[in-house]
Amino acid sequence: MNTEPPVFSVRELWKVFGPKADRVPKDPALAALGPAELRRRTGCTAAVRDVSFDVRKGEVFVVMGLSGSGKSTLVRCLTRLIEPTSGSIAMDGEDVLSMDTARLRELRRHRAAMVFQHFGLLPHRSVIDNVAYGLEIQGVPRAERRERAAEFVTKVGLEGMEHRRPEQLSGGQQQRVGLARALAVDPEVLLFDEPFSALDPLIRRDMQEEVVRLHGEEGRTMVFITHDLGEALKLGDRIALMRDGRIVQLGTPEEIVGAPADDYVRDFVRDVPREQVMTVRTAMRPAEAAEADSGPALGPDATVHEAIEAVVRSGGTARVVENGRCVGVVGHADLLGVVAGLAPRKEAA
């Protein structure tokens, strides 16, 4: 588990749109209202309601929810592209909401860069100048920023297309430009706002793998907004699942799938292939007698899917080994129980 200090620390964050929005979080009676009732009573819409979470250094933090759940508003609040109504946001311990314009600009220029659903590229500029745009804004001299931009153009696999215009690129290529633009400023955190939802499924998969690769190479902290559960499970170290502006569950993919907090989440994850998400750590039981010494060894983070393969091959149980010590075993019944969605019989020690 990631124990690094938080990059973003969000507490009791509210964003309410509408007239006299700031009274809503203050008044507990109003704050307790449902969306429809709130709208009727005050004409306001609460896009983000009382949200708190930490984003830890180096992790991929996914905010997931259906459209209208407030996730895009939430990510914009982090760098105050949308001004929050109340609550607090700290970045590396520094209060974001009390920053003055210059400090905030500094944050946006160097510490957090964003990738957008509709790319947000400048249509009148070539690929290379789009990638260099963030550096241009920082005041990096032309030659230097072009050189650095060229590096990132290569990194996202667009070499040879430096002088094309965005409209001459496919959607996937355009988003690579958007990604390169964000990477070029070397930010501490990358913010993704549904970056791949406008892309074709195949290209989307490529791009997701690109993100996984980049994260693997650089270990950069990422906040990733998506409405696609598969994408969330694939990329996220932790997932915050939002509904009507609230976080209904925050946890690892395994926790979300394995232990849905309520019916909404359960319904949401019902069709997820559980064996792909759940790990043997959840599925295992304490070893009995000889089981601790025989059978193939698996790491505790191996998926159930992997364990099934090992168990089928060996014909018996598999050991779960962590730091050279056997912490438990999984057998047919344990694994099938996970796949069938039955609650694990007992927690591992």
Binding site: F116, G120, G178
Partner: peptide, 10 residues
Amino acid sequence: GVMEAAASLG
């Protein structure tokens, strides 16, 4: 979208 992207880059 483009305007927001520019703002997001500071």
